[in-house]
Design a protein around this nucleic acid. Sequence first.
DNA 1: TCTGGGGTCCTAGGACCC
DNA 2: TCTGGGGTCCTAGGACCC
Length: 422
Amino acid sequence: MPPIFALVDCNNFYASCERVFAPRLEGKPIIVLSNNDGCVVARSNEAKALGIAMGVPEFQIRPLIRAHQVQVFSSNYTLYGDMSQRVMETLEQFCPDLEIYSIDEAFLSLTGFTSRNLTDYGRTIRATVKRWTGLPVSIGIAETKTLAKIANRIAKRTPDTGGVFDLLACSDRDALLGRVPVEDVWGIGRNHTRLLNQHGIKTALQLREVDEQWIRKHLGIVGLRLVMELRGVSCLDLEECPAPKQSLTCSRSFGHPISTLAEMEEAVSSYASRVAEKLRRGRLAGTVMTVSLTTNEFKEGPQYSNSVTLNLSVATDSTADLIKSSLRGIRAIYKEGYNYKKAGVILTSLVPASQTQADLFDAQDRVKSKRLMSALDAVNDRWGAGTLHYASSGITKRWKAQFQHRSPAYTTDWAALPIVTA
DNA sequence: TCTGGGGTCCTAGGACCC
DNA sequence: TCTGGGGTCCTAGGACCC
């Protein structure tokens, strides 16, 4: 049976999540900012219409924000993560074969659903998600994932589709592909766009017709797959079981520049703690740690960035171990005389925690450490992240990122439940 | 004053082995 | 004169994604 994919994508996801809990903002421009309230990472349609671009720094659009009373939110990942889960659970009711592709997107396999009118089925899905979660979605349907992405884009931009577009049921496919700029094709980024444009390839339709040898040479195997997908040959399967994670990162910009080793040690050790928590949550342990730091490239003055990779010799998920290594790393690369903007801790060579190798020369009491970590996680789950933490992570944390416009955790914290007044 | 964070996959080139 | 070649593993860097 030939495969059929649907791509379901939440419209302006973060902005829409904020609006669900602030219905007075219906029809108003909304933006959501990145960590530290740095850049715009989500915009409602009204904000897009004002010309606010994705990724612009907030300080550059302040006059626009004031002039049009744009509603500004800091990002609230607890809220978005919970809303995402509700959307995915709803989709599962309609189609058990589902791949959660990102926080706001899922691919469904509609292979074998052809006895139905797929556009109608999509409309039912869309209406149900809206009713159960309050969030608007768009749905694109086609015989490959890459084409489903394009169908989704058409659904989103063409109001009379009612938010659902089935490329299989469409008679003028070539005309539509001819209107899709090549940079909007899934898998074509800035650099490939430049290369393709230099060779006169400007649309999805033109990309589809490119010679296979040429594409293999210039865009590699990934590019070749992409072209085949545009031709309707499915090369990317639905991946229902996510592959095990290969790396785990905590990297953050500071609330203000750091210029002392002591403060840098605090930050890095708190990032290492965060990585340790994520490891334990995923029942993983890590063997190789990379610690990095960097100054602010947007500023004048001397720049420095560096990283160091440490082999931990034994896979671990212990906060104490990881802090110790992160401090060793940061001391190796820290140089006096710079204003640092950001640091990070990355763990790689991850293995399931149950399969960690015992090291004969490892003198530590692993059982004791494990009990300590369980207690630490339990307290922080119950009383809030960071209730218990290692002293090396600092008490004042002056370097921590700022969130001036954060909305409450409406759906995950009893104290923040929205209140309905009659 | 103020510019995010967290991932994956592929490729080219070097080291090493036989 | 003229000095192999193929396979594997590892790593750094590039490109892309949301």
